[in-house]
Structures are given as C-alpha cells and as structure tokens.
C-alpha cells in the first residue's frame, strides 16, 4: 500500500515537473507526435472492435428489457448514445490504453531504469522528464480524445446494427438515430472528453512513475507492469466516480 501511495505521489511530481519542462515543447514536438501516432496505431483497432460490440451488447440487453414496457424501446438510441459518450467510451478506451500503452511505457522505462539508461541520461545532463515523460504525456493527451470519439461513434454504430438486425427489438434504425440525436448533446460529449483527458493523465503519469521507480532486475520489470495496470485501473475508476458526480 505504501508503495502505491509513493508511486502516486511520484506520478504527481512527474506531472508538475512536466509542466516545468513545457518550455522545451517545440524541440520535443516531433517526439510527442511520434508517441501520439504509436498510441493511436496500437489502440485504434482494438478500440474499434470492442466499441462496436459494446454498443451492440448494450442495445441488445437494454432493448430486450425495454421490450416489456410498450413504447420504451423508442429511448434505446438515447440510452446507447448517452452511455457510450458519457461513460463507456472514455472508460473502455482508458482501460484499453492502459493495457496496450500504459504497460508498454512502464516496461520500456523500467527496462531503461534497470539497465542504467536513465542514469546515462542524467550524466549527460539531460532530463528524463523532458525526453521520456513529456512526449508520452502529451502524446496520450492528444490521442485519447480522438480515440474516445472513435469509440463513441463505433459504439453507436454497433447499437444501430443490433437495432437493425435483431427481431426482438421492434424499433427501426431511424427511430434509434432520432432518439440518439435528441438526447446526445455537445455537453454530454464534452463531459466524456473531459473524463478521457483525466484518464490519459492518470494512465501516462502512473505508467511513467512506476517505470522510472523500478529497481532491481528483469523480474521487477514484470512486477512493475502488473502493478501499473492494477494501480491505473483503480485510479481511473475512483476518478471516474468523483468526476461523474461533479459533472452531473
């Protein structure tokens, strides 16, 4: 428990140090874009597939339950639309980013720490925060909203496919889209994007903190990766609850 608190404390320190290094952003912009592209490339296919099925499952389960109440299925579009953009889109994208990107960041930085590459940077008077943390953090902040929007759209499409093709749902596609358009406003999408940015901060900061604090050998690298995933998921869900409460 103490180690987790220390990791979170160090993650906060890294965030503040990154703010201090922002003056070097123009020189690191290439690296930021490179990390953003890598994150997008690694995560986009899996986000697409899972979002499509998540939207479909949501429409199927909700549609089946609403079937018992006459006329209630007309709200299916709004339910899928709001669930995806306010909650499931950002949350699922965050979990996937943790698994695909957060774990890779921790493994890479932990390996650099264990094999003294971080020390080598320090002896060259180069800041690990500037070279390693800031580009990843900004890359994550750039890519997370795009991935979330992509996840929302695929989720909505997944819901529409189910509405269109499953017999127990008695509404047609146009009612689904009309309901979705009526309830999903810019504010709901923005709320989801605010969450997405906060989750990205948590994922990258915790992944970098755990990676940079790794000491020992190859075994500790593996332990750090596991620790990152667990810590990040706990932090994301805790943050999600309080942010949802604040935004509602």
């Amino acid at each position: 428990m103490m180690k987790i608190l220390e990791d979170w404390q160090y993650a906060l320190v890294l965030l503040f140090k990154t703010i201090g290094e922002l003056r070097f952003l123009p020189r690191q912009w290439g690296r930021c874009m490179q990390h953003a592209c890598n994150m997008g490339y690694q995560t986009l296919p899996i986000v697409g597939i899972l979002s499509l099925f998540m939207g479909g499952i949501l429409a199927l389960q909700t549609g089946y339950s609403l079937n018992k109440v006459p006329g209630a299925q007309n709200f299916l579009g709004s339910i899928v639309g709001l669930s995806m953009c306010r909650e499931l889109g950002p949350l699922m994208t965050a979990f996937l980013l943790t698994g695909r990107v957060g774990s890779a960041i921790t493994a890479e930085l932990a390996s650099m720490a264990v094999y003294q590459e971080i020390d080598a940077l320090k002896t060259m008077n180069l800041s690990p925060v500037r070279l390693l943390v800031m580009p990843r953090l900004l890359g994550g902040l750039l890519m997370m909203p795009l991935l979330t929007i992509f996840s929302n759209i695929l989720g909505w499409v997944g819901g529409w496919i189910v509405v269109h093709s499953v017999d127990i749902i008695s509404i047609n596609g146009s009612i689904y889209w009309r309901g979705l358009k009526k309830f999903v406003d810019i504010e709901s999408i923005n709320d989801g994007l605010i969450k997405a940015e906060l989750f990205a901060l948590i994922i990258i900061a915790v992944s970098c903190a755990v990676g940079l604090r790794t000491r020992g050998g190859p075994r500790e690298i593996g332990a750090s990766v596991t620790s990152t995933i667990v810590q990040t998921m706990v932090a994301i869900l805790t943050c999600d609850f309080f942010v949802s409460k604040w935004l509602l």
Partner: peptide
C-alpha cells in the same frame, strides 16, 4: 550551474537500446 562536464562510462555501457 553545469560548470564541469562529468562523463560516466557504465559497466554495461548503458547505451540506449531503442
């Protein structure tokens, strides 16, 4: 003050593998 440059050659080299 970054007054003198101190170079450290590590035991395993510590080259950046990427």
């Amino acid at each position: 003050k970054n007054k003198y440059v101190l170079g450290l050659v590590f035991q395993a080299g510590a080259l950046f593998n990427s």
